[in-house]
Design a protein around this nucleic acid. Structure first.
Length: 423
DNA sequence: CACCGTCAAGTCGCA
DNA sequence: TGCGACTTGACGGTG
């Protein structure tokens, strides 16, 4: 399976809400939780409709879930919602996970930090428990800090682990990070504790073991051995270096070519029924998940690519008119399934900078959906905005927001389902 | 309504 | 001892 983390781009899932500590009244918390559970339900439906069976639930689903700031008995007051969310997860056969961030540290020398970290793990595990999910739905944790003494810090991790509640231990898996604990370190902790290891490809590239005597696939296979029957199949994190960012920064999108060569390398060592679940960590989230899934579909349907094209076409148009025409031509032949070539062209277009004339052209196409219904006032506003965009006097974001409001008003679902307003 | 500083968390490097 | 950087997306106050 291939999946993505926390956020579903596009217009089919309402973003999660949050609040600050000082605004965290019971009323606010309750309304945010209600909203967020609805959002999760939307995400599960989106994933199901798009053949995505791997999804990370955001730690922010319950604001201040492990803090005294939130004393709401949310498991009870949202019991029905949680039960039906769990049913959805099982019905859709989606494997979910949660991933406390870098600030949840159980190997700290400070007892209060450890206590809060344990509370945080309990919160995460109890959220998954509240959905009645089995132990293959995991909780991913980094090892923590080093504190000038790595051996001792690793020992502390191991001894704290022993005393974690059973429902946390049943779900806990550990991951190599991009600075401190390499896959070799994490495997050492795994052999002392039996905790399964999530292999993170980019962290491994940025922070390889000191004695790096193995290929990436060999390390990945060692991690595979740490997954036992009840844990479900091996999970890994896959991401690519952002060309513009610092080392370890995630890319905007998953480059399909590099992804496929990685995947095909795995296929040479692992039988197809036993390949790991791959969590993509990437800025464009579900968009890359769909891309990778479609690119691996072996008898793929051209219809799937046509639907993808309908979502991306105006984004492509505003980046590169020539590629827009190329993709249109590529999808003319309904007897083939040119997924990889399609995404290659898509990536080529979207990586180009937008020129004002092209942005104007795309906006004019989009405006064409609304213009038959628009009021005189809206027509005048549109004309002004499009001209200003053409002359590079206003940002295309501004024009998109204007067009988005009209698309909502006139219920242009074709546009609302597209990514034109997304990025 | 656009903009941008702030918020949460813990560690680590550097004064 | 203390402070800023690091990370992330949304909040929330300002203009």
């Amino acid at each position: 399976m291939i999946g993505y983390a926390c956020i579903t781009l596009g217009n089919s899932v309402d973003p999660l809400r949050g609040c600050t500590k000082k605004n965290a009244t019971n009323e606010t918390l309750s309304s945010v939780i209600g909203h967020n559970l609805t959002s999760l339900s939307q995400a599960l439906h989106y994933n199901h409709q798009n053949n995505i069976q791997l999804f990370r639930i955001s730690s922010d689903i319950i604001p201040f879930g492990s803090s005294p700031v939130n004393s709401l008995p949310w498991k009870d007051s949202f019991g029905e919602e949680l039960t039906s969310l769990g049913e959805l997860v099982r019905r859709f056969k989606i494997r979910v996970s949660m991933h406390p961030g870098q600030y949840t540290v159980i190997n700290s020398p400070h007892q209060d930090v450890v206590d809060r970290a344990i509370e945080d793990l309990i919160y995460h595990a109890s959220f998954l428990d509240s959905l009645s999910l089995d132990a293959s739905h995991k909780l991913i944790l980094h090892i923590g800090g080093i504190y000038n003494e790595k051996e001792a810090a690793m020992d502390r991790f191991i001894s704290v682990y022993q005393y974690l509640p059973e429902n946390v231990k049943a779900r806990l898996v550990i991951e190599n990070d991009d600075r401190l604990y390499s896959v070799a370190d994490v495997l050492a902790i795994s052999s002392a504790t039996g905790i399964p290891v999530v292999f993170d490809t980019l962290h491994h590239e940025v922070n390889p073991p000191h004695q790096n005597d193995k290929s990436m696939v060999e390390w990945l296979l060692l991690c595979k051995n740490t997954w036992k029957r009840n844990d479900g199949c091996q999970k890994i994190h896959y991401s690519q270096q952002s060309p513009s960012g610092k080392a370890g920064a995630h890319s905007q999108t998953i480059g399909i070519e590099a992804f496929l060569s990685f995947y095909h390398a795995l296929e040479q060592y692992i039988p197809s029924g036993d390949l790991p679940d791959i969590m993509l960590e990437v800025k464009d989230k579900n968009l890359s998940a769909v891309k990778c899934i479609n690119s691996l579909a072996h008898p793929g349907k051209i219809r799937t690519l046509e639907e993808e094209w309908s979502r991306y076409k105006y984004n492509v148009l505003e980046h590169d008119h020539a590629i827009y025409l190329k993709i249109r031509a590529l999808l003319k032949d309904k007897t083939i399934y040119p997924a990889v070539e399609f995404y290659r062209l898509l990536e080529a277009a979207l990586s180009k900078t937008i020129r004002p004339e092209a942005a104007d052209n795309a906006a004019a196409h989009v405006w064409g959906y609304m213009s038959p219904f628009a009021t005189q006032k809206e027509k005048e506003a549109a004309s002004l905005k499009l001209t200003a965009l053409h002359n590079n006097e206003i940002s295309s974001d501004l024009v998109k927001k204007f067009l988005y409001r009209l698309a909502v008003k006139y219920e242009q679902t074709y546009l609302l389902d597209s990514f034109y307003f997304t990025f």
